[in-house]
Design a protein around this nucleic acid. Structure first.
Lengths: 347, 347
DNA sequence: GCGCTCTCTGAAAGCGCTTTCTCGGCTACT
DNA sequence: AGTAGCCGAGAAAGCGCTTTCAGAGAGCGC
């Protein structure tokens, strides 16, 4: 006969040991109401001796409220999400909340599934920190999950543009940032650009590409299709895109990768192909993830306050709901580093 | 008068709408038992129409089991943890489990606190993926939280050596890896080393430093105190340590940073001080986080299967408990890249 | 000294689900 | 035809907590 699995210590046990009622024990432990000092002591002592931990599920059920915040991203190991998640976790820690993090691995189905699970957990809020998709079906099923959740009092907040999701939003100024970057690059003397993009359905990609292209067009320049390469939204995607660009021959003087992560891949591709950055081609990214200043050469990019964005989206989610959805814009700041230089001819 | 906050849809509602009992509805939704086909249909239909989502707390309470796995790390934005966490999340996703991620920001108090919270959540397992401390007090309070949890059926698994925590462990071969690295470096011809370490109380630091120092000693060489610099376990710590080393004058021919993250900082410090790697000094790290192959020069390091470690620790935690704690060793493989070269004199 | 607030405590009713336990209605035997 | 044996459905008892709702004292004014 094996030793019986010792059960969890319950409030009941504590109350009994302290010689008080359940209600009193609960009140002491939560500080919900005044309790005579001697009883207080007894309860606290009993809880201590028994190493009591309240059952969060029972609490959640009885009080219909929980301390968990759900966060959905594409991949924690992507530095962009890691930084934003960091900000979220810091904010959560300050408010005594727990974060349930889900990685979708870029599978929309999994995203929907996770929302359902978070809904089941009665998470206090759900934070979507990945880019939105411009895709009707996806939007529909997304709303289908999110709406009942919100109607029941759940809060939703997002980072990046999620068309048709009427929720509080932390909105990086992707379009403006990309345009500002283009302006800086034009000022450096560049006239011939290429863009390495991710999937166009991602709003982030669309906005950054759009902003950049518009600024270039405004300067009276062309950005022919041959100068635009679409690839996966990853380091390897960036590598592949840059390689493709090289294969097409006749490099531009300046390449813009829509994210730093892709730029890192591009930089590697250029190095592997003996293309010197910035001597032969200038390279710029977007996000300013921590690592890019340590690359050789350090990467020119548009800095976004990633940590802060995480904190803010958390704040929006816990702040009492507004009548209309709020939008908090996050400006991107162009940071010129040495991965960009004046084009060869100009020097 | 504002519209009444619509309540959550409950199983009761579904059962009622389908004209069946609570029990039957539960059985249909969980597939726990045979239910007549027509009733099945009705229940499913009702659940669909009402957009029913079970209350996970109620489920957890009634069935005393939950689907959440708690993961505690120091900082999600550290690529090492991000990679391990990625593995954990993939494994969790395969098993239909949710991950609750907590960042301690290297504050031991917060670590203890998080364990308590996870205990309250009746998490199915708690995974500690940060290095352990060699510190009596810490160990004591850690055990104090973990033991009641385990007695009550909770599972605990860790990555890295946690002295005195008798739990399932995924153990990177830090000592052996560091020794192997030293051997490779010796073979390259180096005889004069320096080590950039993190806090010595961290078992990971102790093991890596110990392994490296032992291998160097075995070769009959000295590693004087002046060649050992301790700093924070971060990129900036690495930068500071390398700067200090330079300040001391007379560089060694080869520097070992106990983690890649510190090595990245060191590389930046060398660059900023005009010290060429590997021409003037060779530099090696440990972990093989994804980014290091994209540095200039690519970093020599000891590769650990980070993703896999995450998956494995998860597996250990969900596998039925063994009588004795299991230890799964993870070999580190020396990867020589161009941040190391034969010392100047030898060429 | 009596009634009247005021506090503080305990009893008990849920919160939404799972899971026995029961029992009605069948089929399958003898 | 009678009865043992099954299968599937419903009633009901919790799971561990919070929170109303009364009630018991204690303190107070008259």
């Amino acid at each position: 006969m094996t030793e019986p699995e010792r059960q969890h210590v319950t409030l009941q046990d504590v109350a009994h040991r302290a010689g008080v009622s359940l209600a009193t024990a609960s009140r002491v432990l939560n500080g919900t109401a005044q309790v005579r000092a001697d009883l207080r002591e007894k309860v606290l002592a009993a809880a201590g001796v028994l190493a009591y931990t309240p059952n969060a599920h029972a609490q959640a059920l009885a009080s219909s409220s929980s301390k968990v915040i759900g966060v959905i991203c594409h991949d924690v190991s992507d530095p962009y999400f890691a930084s934003v998640a960091r900000g979220v976790m810091r904010a959560a820690s300050d408010r005594d909340l727990m974060v349930m993090l889900a990685s979708t691995f870029r599978d929309p189905a999994r995203e929907i599934e996770y929302i359902a699970t978070l809904r089941a957990q009665r998470a206090r809020a759900i934070l979507l920190i990945g880019s939105g998709f411009e895709d009707r079906d996806w939007e529909r099923s997304m709303s289908a999950e999110l709406e009942p959740y919100q109607r029941a009092g759940g809060r939703v907040a997002v980072v990046s543009r999620h068309r048709s999701l009427k929720v509080d939003t932390v909105l990086p100024q992707n379009r403006e940032g990309a345009a500002a970057l283009a302006a800086s690059l034009l000022e450096l003397g560049h006239r011939d650009f290429a863009v390495l993009t991710g999937p166009r359905e991602l709003t982030t990609v669309a906005d950054r590409f759009g902003g950049f292209a518009a600024a270039v067009a405004e300067a009276g320049l062309e950005l022919p299709d041959s100068r635009v390469v679409e690839a996966a939204f990853t380091r390897d995607g960036g590598y592949a895109a840059a390689t493709e660009l090289i294969r097409r021959g006749e490099l531009p003087t300046c390449v813009f990768a829509v994210t730093d992560v892709m730029a890192i891949g591009a930089l590697a591709a250029f190095r592997d192909n003996g293309v010197s950055v910035p001597d032969e081609v200038s390279l710029a990214g977007f996000d300013d993830i921590p690592i890019v200043r340590d690359l050789t050469p350090p990467l020119t990019t548009v800095a976004l306050p990633l940590d802060l964005m995480g904190e803010r989206v958390m704040e929006l989610a816990v702040r009492d709901p507004a009548r209309r959805s709020r939008v908090e814009r996050m400006p991107g700041e162009v940071v010129l580093r040495t991965s960009t230089a004046a084009p060869r001819g100009k020097r």
